[in-house]
Simulated assay, not measured.
Amino acid sequence: MTQIALITGASRGLGAALAKALVPTHHIVAVGKTVGALEELDDAIQGLGGQATLAPMDITVDAAMQQLCRGIFDRWGKLDLWLHTAVHAAPLAPAGHIGPKDLAKSIAINVEATARLISYVGPLLGQGGHAVFFDDPRGGAQFFGAYGATKAAQIALARSWQAESQRTGPKVTILEPAPMPTATRARFYPGEDRSALTDPATEAARLLPQILQA
């Protein structure tokens, strides 16, 4: 039976690299907001001999996520793997000067959407599926208030789900990727020497054995 992997945040960076790395073992359901980037990913997956289902959706739109998960159930009846790489990188700002809109968007994407997706995707994963989250521990760092707080809240949700599902499943794993030259990181460190960072494809290959562990 075909293995199905849902990747939220698949259009760029680590999400796209993981989608390509999973081609030999999984059909990819790729979720992202940028249609052009998803189409490029689809071309790359087909070039590697794989198949993808593109879902150009905003994870903060509840009805869209319900429709997505219902579509997965109707077509395959289950999910084997969920990789949640979607994140909002709010502009850096002192804690006392975080813009209300930036904070609201960070909460909507990094926390609220994650909580809803856990409730929708969990039943598709069942007892034998695997959900993977990606930590970026910047909570408490200078100027990272909006990003650090909401990313920490996302991982706290994942850790609670991990503890709650330890005996019943699905398996929940939290990984910490190495620094990569992604668009998210470029917003935080615009003048950084990116040559010293790990290429997303290299990092995907390093993380893959842990992701594929049953």
Results as ranks from 00 to 15, higher is better:
residue 3 Q to L: 08
residue 181 P to H: 15
residue 124 L to Y: 14
residue 75 R to L: 03
residue 142 Q to V: 00
residue 166 Q to Y: 09
residue 189 Y to S: 10
residue 97 H to D: 12
residue 155 I to S: 01
residue 10 A to N: 04
residue 209 P to I: 07
residue 45 I to E: 07
residue 212 L to R: 13
residue 170 P to A: 09
residue 93 A to G: 12
residue 43 D to Q: 09
residue 87 V to F: 07
residue 186 A to V: 04
residue 165 S to P: 01
residue 143 F to E: 12
residue 24 P to Q: 00
residue 157 L to I: 15
residue 164 E to L: 02
residue 84 H to F: 10
residue 100 P to E: 12
residue 72 I to E: 06
residue 141 A to S: 09
residue 77 G to Q: 05
residue 13 G to Y: 00
residue 203 E to R: 04
residue 175 L to D: 12
residue 24 P to V: 01
residue 81 L to N: 10
residue 115 A to K: 03
residue 123 P to L: 14
residue 46 Q to C: 04
residue 27 H to W: 03
residue 115 A to G: 10
residue 159 R to F: 14
residue 91 P to C: 08
residue 178 A to E: 14
residue 48 L to H: 04
residue 78 K to N: 14
residue 195 S to K: 06
residue 82 W to V: 09
residue 177 P to I: 15
residue 60 T to A: 07
residue 124 L to I: 07
residue 101 K to W: 02
residue 134 F to V: 05
residue 47 G to H: 03
residue 55 A to M: 03
residue 73 F to V: 09
residue 198 T to H: 11
residue 156 A to C: 09
residue 200 P to I: 09
residue 106 S to V: 05
residue 117 L to A: 11
residue 6 L to T: 10
residue 56 P to G: 12
residue 111 V to P: 01
residue 122 G to R: 13
residue 23 V to N: 12
residue 24 P to G: 03
residue 199 D to C: 00
residue 7 I to V: 15
residue 173 T to R: 12
residue 27 H to V: 13
residue 141 A to N: 15
residue 71 G to L: 07
residue 166 Q to M: 07
residue 181 P to V: 00
residue 9 G to T: 06
residue 127 Q to F: 13
residue 64 A to R: 02
residue 194 R to P: 01
residue 102 D to N: 14
residue 171 K to E: 13
residue 162 Q to Y: 02
residue 202 T to F: 02
residue 208 L to H: 11
residue 144 F to M: 10
residue 3 Q to F: 04
residue 151 K to L: 02
residue 143 F to I: 00
residue 16 A to C: 02
residue 196 A to K: 14
residue 8 T to I: 13
residue 22 L to M: 13
residue 136 D to C: 03
residue 33 K to E: 15
residue 185 R to L: 15
residue 64 A to S: 11
residue 18 L to C: 08
residue 184 T to Q: 07
residue 122 G to S: 14
residue 9 G to H: 04
residue 174 I to N: 02
residue 95 A to Q: 07
residue 209 P to T: 09
residue 213 Q to C: 01
